[in-house]
Amino acid sequence: MRWRPGPIFIILALATCIPLLDQILPVELQLSEAVRGVFLYAILALGLNVVTGYAGLLNLGIAAFMAIGAYTFGILTCEIYPFQLGFWSALGLTIPIGALAGFILGAPTLGLRGDYLAIVTLGFGEIVQDVLKNLDVVTKGTQGINPLPAPTFGGHEWTADDEYKWYYLLLALLVVTVIAIRNLERSRLGRAWFSIREDEIASRSMGIRVERIKMIAFATAAAIAAMAGGLSASILSSTGEPSNYDFQISILALCIVIVGGIGSIAGVLVGALVMVGLNSIVLVKATAWMAAHGIGSQGNVLLSPNNWKFLIFGLALVLAVRLKPSGLVPPRIERAPQ
């Protein structure tokens, strides 16, 4: 069979050129810094896509697993705790710990009807924030854990100036995630996920162990989200406060999956570009521009672009489901699991 570059490959190949663009263009766009956020959320949304896109289970608490990853990373690396692991080993540990958290939440709840799961995960998202806030002996409460180390390569640690290194590290991790998920998608496991999404009773009657297969999807998603959390903590050099991982983040990830194309990796990448582009590029730049021109500095709520976030997310979901239910880049049937 002749190899044709698929849309995923093209998107990722284009992404390698962005830092170059930053240097060529005369204006100070700082594209690569913004695109970093796209990569991070793409990783998170790829995780959500496993559970929501493939297995058809609505998970509204993906941000909680991101928080668990971030705090795990923080506790394992920060100098105020005795563990003090390096970047790579701590990031590696976020994955099994995220999976374990997914298992603990999933074990009692995955036997339920799908819509109950949505509310349980939503509640979990809120509770994890509460717990992190309340356990301030362990988590430093609302201060967040900082400072956190950056990655080290060949013995020296990166500094904030290593803009492009960060960019390519995130891109590389995104590529690894894409490959891993594609391998799972095109295997017996992916097929079982698809079959459960389509007809749970029929799958069960064919001998698919539904609870176990759902659990693997749930734990995989949690593990990927936790890794994204660890990465984001490392980029910011702080876990931030617990409310940084609130419902908004989960919904942003859901928007990426729904708008981009549910169950499609290329769709998630495009969705991440569109939604994160809107959220942390257009809105942020608009706010900066308005501040520079003295519009809406205070007072009127309508004049602060940030206040439109919920509306944009909400409309994106409602309109996407209504007008383009399979998303911008729908999954291709003949490319379904091999």
Binding site: A118, I258, F310, L311, G314, L317, V318, V321
Partner: peptide, 19 residues
């Protein structure tokens, strides 16, 4: 359509109302 789309639409409405 699927139950998932209906739920997603409801979440969208929730966010619009919140805004």
């Amino acid at each position: 359509s699927s139950k998932l789309s209906l739920l997603v639409s409801a979440i969208g409405c929730s966010f619009i109302c919140m805004n």
